[in-house]
């Protein structure tokens, strides 16, 4: 029996996966921006910590979404994105507690 070679069509990514990647990336990007506002110095005008995270937000969001959706090793991508988001969250909470204590 002979088999006709067929062109392999890529298995489609489910729309659910794309929605999850975009929403998870949005949460991660917002947390990273909160973390950035803790790390970035306020500057002479006292606004750099507020405005520079706003400038970075679209880049962080798209990078996280693409990493979660289309990285060759998505498990590692999930780990990196989650790790960054958690570190940022910890920095923000620590900063809030320090500010409340002082």
């Amino acid at each position: 029996m002979t088999t006709t070679p067929t062109r392999q069509t890529p298995t489609p990514a489910r729309p659910r996966e794309a929605t999850f990647a975009v929403l998870a990336a949005l949460v991660a990007a917002l947390l990273v921006c909160c973390g950035l506002s803790v790390v970035i110095p306020e500057g002479r005008a006292g606004v750099d910590h507020l405005l520079l995270p706003c400038v970075a937000f679209p880049v962080v969001w798209i990078a996280a979404a693409l990493a979660l959706f289309a990285a060759p090793d998505r498990r590692r991508a999930r780990l990196v994105v989650t790790g960054l988001a958690l570190v940022s969250l910890a920095a923000t909470v620590a900063d809030s507690l320090t500010a409340a204590a002082s």
Binding site: G43, R44, A45, G46, V47, L50, L51
Partner: peptide, 8 residues
Amino acid sequence: VGAVPSVS
């Protein structure tokens, strides 16, 4: 924005 000129 801010009180004096800045990076932002």
